[in-house]
């Protein structure tokens, strides 16, 4: 029995060690700043995306973020995933001009967006984006929530983390102070100010509200399949729990005679 216990301890230790591998890297990038811990509806094993918040967040992304940040994996058809009807998604798509072509004369042309189109990027390429933003490349936001330690909490903290720089910090032109950015120097000026967008549902557009909404939108954009993942996971766990109980009972019943001392091979040799 003792052997088993120590072995299980070893197993637990090796798992702990798996997780330790992550902790320091999160520290390295976040510089040990404690992130604001926001309760998002998509957290936890049954979490789902708050559709209304995601739609407001989409509005913030469209009206503010998208002037510098692309979201290259975001197609208009995806809008149905945050509760827009197909008609509304089509209407939103049609508000964008998409470069298509070449036409019969070999020229590219512009046409209104369709559901199958992806959100057009604000800059044609990385170099153009850098040139327009003082040398700093505004990252694509498609998977940004998965690409930063701390994920959604980090993003919210960053968006609400603009402060007056402490006296000992020297900021170069084009740099801003942010409490949550690694090194505290960020090339993005504070993007959100109160009432920058007018929410259709009457929600007050404070900086915190907009930051939270756009974080919900980007968390969804980073992983649109999350709800399906968790719901399949739940069914899987229920199924496997019952199955394991049955396997346990089967195994116990099969082994019972052996535990009592049966010797199935004894006497079999003579027959063979």
């Amino acid at each position: 029995m003792r052997i088993k216990k120590t072995f299980i301890l070893g197993l637990v230790a090796s798992l702990g060690f798996a997780n330790l591998g992550l902790a320091p890297s999160a520290l390295a990038a976040g510089e040990a700043v404690k992130l604001k811990d926001i309760e998002f509806s998509f957290e936890g094993p049954f979490g789902t995306f708050d559709r209304a918040a995601a739609q407001r967040g989409f509005q913030v992304y469209r009206e503010i973020c998208s002037s510098c940040h692309s979201a290259q994996y975001f197609a208009f058809r995806n809008l149905e995933g945050i509760g827009y009807s197909e008609e509304m998604a089509k209407a939103i798509a049609a508000e964008y001009q998409i470069t298509d072509g070449p036409d019969d004369f070999g020229d590219m042309f512009e046409r209104p967006g369709k559901l199958s189109d992806r959100m057009p990027a604000p800059f044609p390429n990385q170099n153009a984006a850098r040139a327009a933003n003082g040398g700093a490349y505004p990252p694509d936001l498609s998977v940004i929530v998965k690409a930063r330690p701390g994920g959604a909490d980090y993003l919210y903290s960053l968006l609400t983390g603009y402060e007056e720089p402490p006296a000992d910090i020297e900021l170069a032109p084009g740099q801003y102070y942010n409490a949550y950015m690694a090194g505290h120097k960020i090339a993005m000026p504070q993007p959100l100010y109160d009432d920058m967008v007018g929410y259709a549902d009457g929600t007050e557009a404070t900086v915190e509200q907009m930051a939270k909404d756009v974080t919900v939108f980007l968390a969804w954009l980073a992983e649109p399949s999350m709800e399906q993942r968790k719901s399949i996971g739940f069914s899987f766990m229920i199924f496997m729990s019952i199955f394991v109980v049955l396997l346990y009972l089967t195994n116990r019943r099969i082994w019972r005679p052996i535990k009592k001392g049966a010797m199935p091979w004894v006497g079999k040799d003579e027959k063979a």
């Binding site: 899987f236 766990m237 089967t250």
Partner: peptide, 27 residues
């Protein structure tokens, strides 16, 4: 029986913390 228990452990990662063993920088 071992497979059953193992799959539950496996499923916890796949369904509830699929990126916990990876590194955010790889996104």
């Amino acid at each position: 029986l071992g497979v059953g228990v193992f799959l539950i452990f496996f499923g916890l990662f796949v369904f509830y913390m699929p990126n916990s063993l990876g590194h955010p920088d790889n996104y």
